[in-house]
Design a protein around this nucleic acid. Structure first.
Length: 324
DNA sequence: CGATTTTGACCGGCGC
DNA sequence: GCGCCGGTCAAAATCG
């Protein structure tokens, strides 16, 4: 039924990495796209995301890098974990990351996993497993808890981004108001309940919106292709080295700014793709500063923080953000 | 032959 | 209560 629309998906799988430069107006584009899910969200559907932070960036230099992937052994962890201290509200907290001030965070993002967030996270994971195992006999009273989620957009022909983890597709649904179907993936690792949804923006089919939910409970599997680094050395999510050596993906650092002057920075990084146009934390879970998880890789000095902002942001956007 | 994808059906939450 | 819709299941099909 939805097969016809799958052309895009098929194209994507061809690994025809057709990375395009993000147009200078990507900033607006990205925002408008994120508005879409927000609208839907108002309808109260399940899987919708509270678009909290949207960080956009364009980076010719990064695209260049992507075209000639560096082979730097890195590892990274996918999800930021919810800080136990952060209330789970839909309040929007602007937490754009900044290249120069990345020090705080990323780890944060994810972080919380260590001991503190363990409580919350473990519970969620356990809950998830339960629901899985007891599929039918679901608990009624218990409202299903949502894992921390974050979403970001990437301009690419490829839909299923290679983020270093192995995913198994378990569903595909047509999305209301969109000609493009949404695909559902689950991490293939046993006991790892991380999921992700991938869909194309109907406003701009060249843009892929990926939403991750949950936190990996295992190291990223090693992949032969080497890896991509992260945008900053400070980005490291955890103690490098720990796990398998996954490198393709990293959580952007999140830094709380009073004024949203800087809107860009570290984005998830894919091995087969261009960097995301924008990044958003969903579920209002903004990772707390300095928290680290095991097997998060230390970021490679792939790209320097300093000066990166300029590369990433067209002067025009920079100007605009400053004016805000 | 095991792993993955496809796809129709089912379930639960939410708005009306 | 009903219908809509997102999310998930699971059998069948496909792939490597």
């Amino acid at each position: 039924m939805e097969k016809k629309e799958d052309n895009s998906t098929e194209n994507a799988s061809l690994s025809d990495q057709n990375h395009q430069m993000i147009p200078s107006n990507s900033f607006f584009m990205a925002n408008s796209i994120f508005d879409m899910p927000c609208e839907v969200d108002q309808k109260g559907s399940l899987g919708l995301i509270d678009m909290l932070n949207v960080q956009d960036f364009t980076s010719p230099s990064i695209f260049d890098l992507l075209q000639t992937p560096p082979v730097i052994p890195l590892q990274s962890q996918l999800l930021p974990s919810p800080p136990s201290t952060v209330p789970e509200s839909s309040e929007v907290v602007n937490t754009p990351a900044s290249p120069n001030s990345s020090s705080m965070s990323s780890s944060s993002t994810e972080a919380a996993n260590d001991k503190q967030s363990k409580t919350v996270e473990e519970e969620e994971e356990i809950d998830q497993e339960k629901t899985k195992k007891q599929l039918k006999p679901k608990k009624k009273n218990q409202k299903r808890q949502r894992e921390p989620r974050f979403a970001f957009m990437t301009k690419s022909e490829i839909e299923h981004l290679d983020d270093g983890y192995r995913w198994r597709k378990y569903g595909q649904k047509a999305v209301k108001n969109s000609p493009f179907p949404r695909s559902y993936y689950r991490c293939t690792s046993t006991a790892c309940g991380v999921k992700k949804r991938v869909e194309r923006s109907f406003e701009d089919p060249s843009i892929v919106v990926t939403t991750y939910e949950g936190t990996h409970t295992h190291p990223c599997p090693i992949t032969p292709r080497g890896s991509f680094g992260i945008l900053s050395e400070n980005t490291s999510y955890g103690g490098g080295g720990g796990g398998g050596g996954c490198s393709s993906f990293t959580i952007p650092q999140v830094i709380h700014y009073q004024n949203q002057q800087h809107q860009i920075q570290q984005q998830p990084y894919f091995r087969n793709l261009a960097p995301p146009l924008s990044f958003t934390y969903a579920n209002s879970l903004v990772p707390p500063p300095h928290q680290e998880r095991p097997f998060y890789p230390s970021a490679a000095p792939l790209a320097r923080d300093h000066g990166l902002l300029e590369d990433m942001l067209p002067s025009r956007i920079l100007k605009e953000t400053k004016e805000e």
